[in-house]
Each structure stands twice: as C-alpha cells, then as structure tokens.
Design a protein around this nucleic acid. Structure first.
Lengths: 123, 123
DNA sequence: CCCTTCCTCAACCAGATGGTTGACAAAGCG
DNA sequence: CGCTTTGTCAACCATCTGGTTGAGGAAGGG
C-alpha cells in the first residue's frame, strides 16, 4: 500500500461507492453512521472505504465526542486535474496539427528511431 | 468486469505504468513493442495494460500489417474532469459560504434526512 | 517455403481489495 | 453504575489484479 499519491487518488475514486461518498460529502460533513445508512453493506465496509479516501488525502476525520465527522478535502482534486489537463492538451494539440497536415502516412518516417524524447514521464 | 465507465477510467489511470503509457501516447501513436521497450516487464504484461486502457476507452488499436498502432483517445478524459469539477466546485462553494458564516457546530442535526443539506443553519 | 517479427491467448501465482462477522474501546445517557 | 451509540480492529473469505511463462496465429522478408 505504498503507491504514489496520484495512484492512490485515482484508485480511491475508481469505486462507485467511494465516489458516492465524496459526492455526498461535497454538500457537507457527515459521520460514519450517517454515511453508511443509505447503503446495504455493513458499517465496517463503509469505514474501510473512508479509510481508503483518507489515505488518498481526499478526506479527513475530526473529533466530536464519540463521533468522527468526515470532511472532504477538495484540494487533492487538483493533483488529478493537473495530470489530466497536461496530457489532454498535448493530445489535442497534436490532433489539431494533424488536422492541418491532413492524414499523411509517414512512409519515410522511422517507426521509432529513439523513443527517448518521451521518457520524461512524470507521474 | 462490468464496471461503469467512470470507474473503468479512474481504475485504468490508477496504475503508474498505465499513466506513463498514456503520457507517452499523448505525443504520438506507437506499437506495443515500442511501448514495452522502456519497461523491464514482459511484453505480455504491457499488452494487458493496454487492454485495460482500451476497455476504459482511453485507447484504440489500429491495423498496419502485423502491427497494431495504439492511439490515445483523449475525449474520455472529459468524463473524469466533469465529475471532478462538479464536486470540487460544490465543495469550494460550501467552503466559501462556511467562511462567511464562521465555524458553526450544528448540534441539533438530524441523523441524515435524505437530501436536504439544510443542516439546521442555512441562513 | 521457412523464419522472424509482432501480438494475443491461456494457465498459473502472489498479493491487494471489498465484503463479512465478532469483539471491544470510548463517550454520553438514564 | 449500567447500557446504548459510534467507530475501530482483527480474522477470515472470494475475487480481482499484475505479473510470469509457454504456445501459437498472422503478416512480411529472405
């Protein structure tokens, strides 16, 4: 469970139940029992989901007597949107350029002389 | 493997290798062997990763003799960004509002009356 | 024709994941 | 003080996942 932050965030949101939790928390903090009520799984299962969201930094838990109000930390979203936007833009730019040039089959282009230029792949 | 589209996309990008593949494909199409070259895992493993990306709709495969050039389909990113933006905005709006109202502890809150986010202190 | 290149399919394995039940600590209520 | 509410921890289980190896199909190059 020592994945990089970006992987943890994507992974956390890859589950419908967890996305629903995030969606509900967007409109206000809530406790575990409140959050678990709508689903037909055990409270412990929801607690595990919250743990995953917490490990991803998407959520924090406060203290109020025996209650632990869960709070959404929306800033972490930026991690994802930045990554996405970066490559989306690159791909779109390339698409437009290719639109200009027209579908030109690069017959004399090396199929891959050096891939290295792209190796600067930061996660 | 019948997860919803959104889950598939998030899940696909939850792996560093697959994000790297996407990053590299953003700058141009490539074949499996080209894509697999930099990693020290088997070609089959990379093929599996591509399958996941394909199932998520992030990537398509063409045909060129025995080669299957892989192409990035960046539009699918929108699925994610739309979801993210929606709840990010909601959370941010709430944060600003809460900034105005000051931290007000809702002591008489109902244990989650279905929808109403009116947690007792709307105005 | 054979042989090489490129890719996929199938079987297998270790570890992560999502769920269960049961026990239990901690805070407040009667 | 006892009991209820709230949440966590632990063990267990089935399935998914990311990797491996091995076999094999399809398309060209000699």
């Amino acid at each position: 469970m020592a994945a990089d932050p970006l992987s943890r965030v994507f992974s956390a949101l890859a589950d419908p139940t967890r996305r629903d939790l995030v969606a509900r928390l967007a409109s206000g903090d809530a406790t575990l029992s409140q959050l678990a009520e709508p689903y037909d799984v055990s409270v412990q299962a929801v607690s595990k989901h919250l743990r995953v969201l917490q490990d991803a930094g998407l959520v924090t838990k406060g203290r109020d007597a025996q209650r632990r109000p869960v709070h959404l930390e929306a800033e972490v979203f930026d991690l994802m949107t930045k990554w996405i936007e970066r490559y989306r833009r690159e791909a779109e730019a390339r698409y437009r350029r290719l639109d200009d040039v027209l579908r030109d089959l690069p017959a004399d282009v090396d199929p891959l002389p050096p891939a290295p230029p792209t190796t600067g792949a930061p996660s």
